[in-house]
Amino acid sequence: MAIDHLKINQLLQRLRSRPYRIYEVKTPHTGYLREFLVKEGTEVKGPRGKWREIPGTPLFTLEREKNLKTIKARVSGTIHNLRTELEGRFVEAEEVVLEIRHPLSQEEVISEFLRETLILITAPETARYLLAPEIEKRIRKEGLGKVFVKPNEEILIMSFMKRETPIVHTGETMVIFRIFFTPQEVVTAGEPLLGLCLQEEVPYLERVISRICEEWPEK
């Protein structure tokens, strides 16, 4: 496979013109929004550290059933549209409280590129998904880009309407190159779950990724 420089350039150009993404921060559940810990325009950080062991910047506190929780940023960026009027009030679940304008990182640009290049397994239904235990074990052991999935092998498990349905790989033998979903979280139908490629494509993909790394240096 030849490197489609044109396509990659177009992608990078598009990302450069709008190099950030807006993340809405919602209340995870009901409760009293006690206090905002950030202001409009505050720079916040997501979880950091080699093992993401340092939690993100505290955003606000939410108290429910005498349990005061600090809601922390999951991504880095700048605070916008802070709804200060909610402070001190009872809020419902999934209420948008603020937005984080998040500049795209190298990793995310790579992810964006892979979404457009890999063969994707998309979510057939809006449901929760899990890797098939066998696949998960192999990925944990060998890492992404090394685990093969054979035709008719169970690759994912869909947890849908209280039932667990296996999703079987239909194509030829391929390598799992990327995971796009978070286990146990609801994925909207049509969103990518996994990105696959042929084994011979792996070196090509790695070359392109290193190119992106050069063009989009980590800040």
Partner: peptide, 19 residues
């Protein structure tokens, strides 16, 4: 009516019940 995160979460129900 109140929007909650989950019907199975007692904390959500009781939090709304009090409010």
């Amino acid at each position: 009516k109140y929007r909650i995160a989950d019907y199975r979460d007692p904390n959500e129900l009781l939090s709304v019940a009090d409010e």
